[in-house]
C-alpha cells in the first residue's frame, strides 16, 4: 500500500497560538477561583481575621485574571482583522453554500460517524471546520456574557472607568442576584465547551493524523500533497499561504474550508 505525502502548512500564526493558551489558562484560573468564591471552604482558625487574607487573595486572582482574559480577547478581535485567513473573522461565518455543505459533512462524518463511499480530501478543512467555527462563535458570545456580567458585578468595587462601562447590566437584569446567577451558570458552559473541544481535538488527531494537537503549539498542520497547487513555489516545505487543491474547483481565493 502506497503511503501518502504530506506537506507542512502554516495555519495558526503566533498571535493566535498565544491567544489560545492565555485564553485557556485564564478560563482554567477563572473557573477554579470562581467556584471557590461561590462556595469557599469553611475553616476554623485560631488566627485573628487580620492575620489572614486567603479569600481576598482568591478574589484578587479572579479579578486580575478577568482583566487578562478581557484584554486577550480584545487582541484576538484585532487579529481577526489583521491575521491570516484562518484567523480572520470571515472564517467563522457560514455564509456560503460550500460552508453549509461543510457543516453537513462534519455532522455526518464526524458526529454521526458515517463513512464516506468516496473519500474526497477536499472535505477536510485546513483551518477550523465550520461546526468548530460555530462553536467558537458560541464561546465568544459566552465570553461576552462573562465580561458583561463580571464587570457589572465588579463595577462597584472599582473607580476605574472600564468596569463602570458595564454597570448598566445590573439594572437591566434587575439586580446583583440575577447578574450573579447568569455569571455562575455561564461558567458551566465554559466547562462543557472545554470537554467537547478537547475531545474533538484528540478525535481529529487520531482519525486524520495530520497534527491537530501539535498545530496549536507549532502552528503547522500537515496537508496532503495532492491538495497543493503544482507550482514550483510549492516545492518549498513551508508555505505561508497554502492555496486550494485545484484552482478551477475553487474560484473564490478566500474560501477556507476546502
Amino acid at each position: 500500500m502506497e503511503s501518502r505525502n504530506f506537506k507542512r502548512v502554516y495555519v495558526w500564526e503566533l498571535p493566535v497560538r498565544i491567544f489560545h493558551w492565555i485564553n485557556a489558562l485564564c478560563i482554567l484560573v477563572l473557573a477554579i477561583t470562581g467556584f471557590i468564591i461561590a462556595d469557599p471552604v469553611a475553616i476554623l482558625s485560631n488566627a485573628e481575621a487580620s492575620e489572614s487574607y486567603w479569600f481576598g487573595t482568591v478574589r484578587f486572582i479572579h479579578f486580575a485574571t478577568a482583566y487578562v482574559f478581557f484584554f486577550n480577547m480584545l487582541l484576538r478581535i484585532y487579529w481577526a482583522f489583521a491575521g491570516n485567513k484562518y484567523a480572520s473573522w470571515k472564517a467563522f461565518l457560514p455564509f456560503s453554500k460550500k460552508r453549509w455543505n461543510n457543516i453537513l459533512h462534519v455532522l455526518r462524518i464526524d458526529i454521526l460517524l458515517q463513512n464516506e463511499k468516496v473519500h474526497d480530501i477536499r472535505n477536510i478543512s485546513v483551518g477550523h471546520n465550520m461546526v468548530a467555527s460555530l462553536s467558537y462563535i458560541a464561546l465568544f458570545v459566552l465570553a461576552l456574557v462573562q465580561v458583561f456580567t463580571g464587570f457589572a458585578l465588579y463595577a462597584d468595587n472599582s473607580d476605574w472607568f472600564l468596569p463602570d462601562l458595564f454597570a448598566w447590566v445590573v439594572p437591566l437584569l434587575g439586580g446583583d442576584f440575577a447578574v450573579r446567577k447568569v455569571h455562575h451558570i455561564a461558567t458551566w458552559f465554559f466547562i462543557f465547551f472545554t470537554i467537547v473541544h478537547v475531545y474533538l481535538v484528540f478525535y481529529h488527531d487520531w482519525l486524520e493524523g495530520r497534527g491537530e494537537v501539535s498545530s496549536m503549539f507549532g502552528g503547522y498542520k500537515f496537508i496532503r500533497e495532492d491538495r497543493l497547487k503544482k507550482t514550483p513555489g510549492n516545492t518549498k516545505e513551508k508555505s505561508e499561504q497554502p492555496s486550494e487543491s485545484k484552482p478551477e474547483d475553487n474560484p473564490k481565493e478566500d474560501e477556507i474550508i476546502v
Binding site: 469557599p40 475553616i43 486567603w54
Partner: peptide, 26 residues
C-alpha cells in the same frame, strides 16, 4: 467583612465558626 476577606466562614448556625462570629456568606 474582615472575616470574609480572611476566608473565615460559618458553615451552619450552630457551629464553632458561627460562635466565633465568622462571616455568614456560606
Amino acid at each position: 467583612r474582615p472575616y470574609y476577606d480572611a476566608g473565615l466562614f460559618a458553615e451552619s448556625f450552630d457551629d464553632e465558626n458561627a460562635k466565633e462570629g465568622y462571616c455568614l456568606y456560606k
